[in-house]
């Protein structure tokens, strides 16, 4: 019996908000994997996002990409962002996160998967967030395709609009609202 190799090797990261440490010291690579079987071995052994405490993140990125704007692969990119109201933590959060991971490891965006960098889930008291990060916010066709396919994969209703934000805009925003570069 052979394990099923993935197209990419992925790293799973965990962030825990500890104000006594520097931001980057709070971010830890848990492990890397590159087969379907190893993905599940990992997934089945970690806390689901809904059980994490507020201020924590999981990130899953292609090997060699760190889950931060500054990484060379992310610098010119952006994210499709899903925000969840508090009451959806119990019902939707873990489900959305798993669907997101399956889209990534299964290369669910076809040839456009090349632009995928990774995904981040933020557990926050004011509302949880899940995002798919891509490498180039100017690749209109690619970004739009990924957004449409992602929305479909999560089973979101057509009329619900999700937005794509360039990291450059998020990083330089002066208030808490970042403008959407694309919407689907």
């Amino acid at each position: 019996y052979m394990k099923h190799p993935l197209q990419n090797r992925w790293g799973l990261w965990f962030y825990k908000n500890d104000k006594s440490k520097m931001w980057q010291d709070n971010l830890r690579l848990i492990t890397k994997f590159d087969t379907v079987e190893d993905f599940w071995a990992l997934y089945n052994n970690i806390q689901p996002p809904s059980k994490l405490s507020s201020g924590c993140d999981y990130s899953m990125f292609k090997d060699g990409i760190e889950p931060m704007w500054e990484d060379r692969s992310n610098k010119c990119g952006g994210r499709w962002l899903i925000t969840l109201a508090k009451q959806h933590r119990r019902t939707e959060l873990d489900h959305f996160w798993l669907e997101t991971l399956l889209c990534l490891i299964g290369e669910g965006f076809g040839s456009f998967s090349r632009d995928i960098c990774g995904s981040v889930i933020n557990i926050r008291a004011k509302g949880d967030k899940i995002a798919i990060w891509t490498s180039n916010a100017e690749n209109c066709e690619t970004v739009t395709y990924i957004g449409k396919k992602y929305k479909e994969s999560l089973g979101l209703p057509q009329k619900l609009v999700i937005g794509y934000q360039a990291h450059a805009d998020t990083a330089t925003k002066s208030n808490s609202i970042t403008k959407n570069k694309f919407v689907v």
């Binding site: 019996y1 052979m2 394990k3 099923h4 190799p5 993935l6 197209q7 087969t35 379907v36 079987e37 190893d38 993905f39 599940w40 071995a41 997934y43 089945n44 669907e99 399956l102 889209c103 490891i105 299964g106 290369e107 669910g108 076809g110 040839s111 998967s113 994969s153």
Partner: peptide
């Protein structure tokens, strides 16, 4: 070729023991 797996295929392995 590209190793693409759809969700149902991936979900089929969730509770399988990894032997290798």
């Amino acid at each position: 070729g590209k190793r693409q797996y759809d969700r149902d295929f991936l979900l089929g392995f969730q509770f399988m023991p990894a032997c290798v």
